[in-house]
């Protein structure tokens, strides 16, 4: 097991409009990408983000060595309960996730 952030070159999270969040995991090479792709389980990621598994969109992009997740924001950007206007903190959650 290893923290995802220790394996990959960058994890970035950002709003995709006020109603969606998107998180990109950038790997340096194909071997890391393959490990990360296999190690990131959709159910675990949905749980980590507190969203319904059915709403999790995932894109495995071997040409970029990138795994991308998009989810509807649990709290719409800028509403009373929103803590993170630009969705910055979600990358940290994924970076600190342990994967096989």
């Amino acid at each position: 097991m290893a923290e995802l952030g220790s394996l990959v070159s960058k994890v970035r999270s950002k709003n995709a409009g006020p109603f969606w969040l998107t998180v990109d995991v950038f790997c340096d090479d194909a071997a890391t990408y393959e490990r990360v792709r296999a190690g990131l389980q959709d159910a675990a990621v949905a749980r980590l983000f507190g969203v319904d598994l059915q709403l999790l969109k995932r894109f495995d992009i071997p040409s970029l060595n990138v795994v991308k997740f998009s989810v509807p924001r649990p709290v719409v950007q800028g509403t009373r309960a929103d803590r993170d206007m630009h969705g910055a903190g979600w990358a940290c959650l994924l970076e600190e996730m342990e994967i096989a």
Binding site: N15, A16, F26, F59, I61, S63, L64, K68, S70
Partner: peptide
Amino acid sequence: PYTVSAHMLYENSDPF
């Protein structure tokens, strides 16, 4: 090619 193609990821819920 990497920096250009990766830009479709940015702030986009579907990169394609």
